[in-house]
Design a protein around this nucleic acid. Structure first.
Lengths: 277, 277
DNA sequence: TTGACAATTGACCGATTAGTCATTATTATA
DNA sequence: TATAATAATGACTAATCGGTCAATTGTCAA
């Protein structure tokens, strides 16, 4: 076994127990029986290690799911989907635990968050195409909800599987979920998640906007606006960004002034999030 | 506002954004505009702060849910359950985010993990009693699965609500979940989670609260409260605990008086279960 | 056996953390 | 106004972190 693999295996055990942030490089190297320096011969940083782990397992998981979805008869498809996923989680329970623990944006590395988000979307995509193939036109309104139900049930039962130490009957579990999802697909009528909603979520998450960016946008906007309360408000807001002197309540009011102007919606949205309103 | 409250509010904002571990005490005090020393005048450690936050919100949430479950007509119960929970999450979205982020055993403080586990079990308990009341004998085999489905769907849709920045139609969301759960309750036949399984997972949850504990809590609460109907009610309840003399109806009324005071939710929940209401 | 090179080590570094405490500022009282 | 009591401060400590690198050990052809 290469040193890299050794580190990945041993580190995964610790991450599953304690979480990524809570595990130090020293602990990992102790657990491997190597020195700290040796760690950095295999990985250039601790981030690169978790990056490798997530890439290694997620590519496998997603290609597995995708292959199964594409190459299974309809009558067995849903069962296969659940069963293989649960089996994979069961076989690689340490990784699954890490995934569960770190799912909610625990990482500080922006690149890693984006990677996780991308993998999540890929799973969604495979699930959606399965749902569409299985139920066709009859669930055209509720298909996104169906995907979210599958996700919700899977993640909750996975938690049960991973964090209870009782060995579970994964076939029975998968069958019970198949029954549930079939029921929902055939009889549920109220759609909550619409196509539009999905599209609005798909846009890249807003990065924290900087003072400089806001100033630049304000300057441009002020130039293009005609004399009005809105323009006056923008000017005051710009001055406040350059030299903060206004009461927060006043700032909020100024943003409120421009919030409904058709050309200022975006900038007011950014200002609101900049000032944490 | 007391300094303690200020710290709790400001810290919650940061925890929601960055997570508990990733937020330093220095950041919190900067955000409050106070010194680091001042923080330790209000809380004896960073752990005590997150402890207080979780206690403060979870006691409210659980007593709210419990009360709703006990005091809503069957035909509206499930909707009310979903709607109030989503509304609470929406109103206290920072706390809900912290809850989501830290749900998977991220904490290192053992006491805190146990506390979270206890609260989780209490929610399960309230949900189970709702399910039993709604569907009675017909779901006797699948009731635990039903509870887990409710949890899974709720947590997944809550994530959607909290981390998408689009305002959502919570009534529609609740209605769609009501439909789904009704379908599962009425038609699902395959049970995965058995009574035995639950029992094997069970560790001591809420111990029966004693007269002495209640007296102590009441004494503390009475001290910190301002003159009001609520305080008067607490004093009468304390006297009744020391020397039972009041009619049960009066006791129930007194508890009702304090039930909606934000600082009395937990104690009223404990009183209700103590008197078997 | 030697010497050149590669692999490995762990003491060390700067940064950051939770938490402390002598000092200073503020408020209440006489 | 003077004095005591209380509140607040921020420089400081000890510990831990990820990451580095001069020094040491191991390997193997000559």
């Amino acid at each position: 076994m290469s040193k890299k693999q050794l580190i990945m295996e041993k580190a995964l055990e610790l991450f599953a127990k304690q979480g990524f942030e809570a595990t130090s490089v020293q602990q990992i190297t102790d657990h491997c029986g190597i020195s700290k320096g040796a760690f950095y011969l295999s990985f250039k940083s601790k981030d690169e290690l978790i990056f490798s782990l997530i890439d290694y397992f997620m590519t496998q998981l997603i290609s597995d799911i995708d292959y199964k979805v594409k190459n299974t008869q309809n009558n067995e498809l849903l069962f296969t989907y659940f069963y293989t996923t649960f089996q994979t989680f069961s076989q690689h329970s340490d990784f699954a635990k890490v995934l569960m623990k770190e799912q909610a944006q625990t990482f500080h590395n922006q690149e890693l968050i984006e990677k996780m988000y991308m993998y999540d979307r890929l799973v969604d995509k495979a699930t959606l195409s399965m749902v569409e193939r299985l139920y066709g036109e009859e669930i055209i309104n509720t298909k996104y909800d169906l995907v979210y139900c599958i996700k919700g049930l899977m993640s909750n039962y996975s938690k049960l599987m991973l964090f209870s130490n009782v060995p579970l009957d994964l076939k029975l579990l998968s069958e019970s979920l198949v029954e549930k999802i079939n029921l929902l697909a055939e009889h549920a009528t109220i759609a909550f998640i619409s196509e539009d909603f999905i599209r609005s979520m798909e846009q890249p998450a807003l990065k924290e906007v900087t003072n400089e960016q806001l100033l630049e946008m304000l300057t441009l906007k002020i130039e293009e606006m005609e004399e009005s309360i809105e323009k006056e408000s923008l000017i005051l807001l710009k001055q406040h960004l350059l030299d903060p002197s206004l009461n927060l309540a006043i700032v909020k009011g100024l943003i409120e002034n421009i919030r409904n102007h058709p050309h200022c919606k975006w900038i007011s949205y950014l200002l609101l999030s900049y000032f944490n309103f």
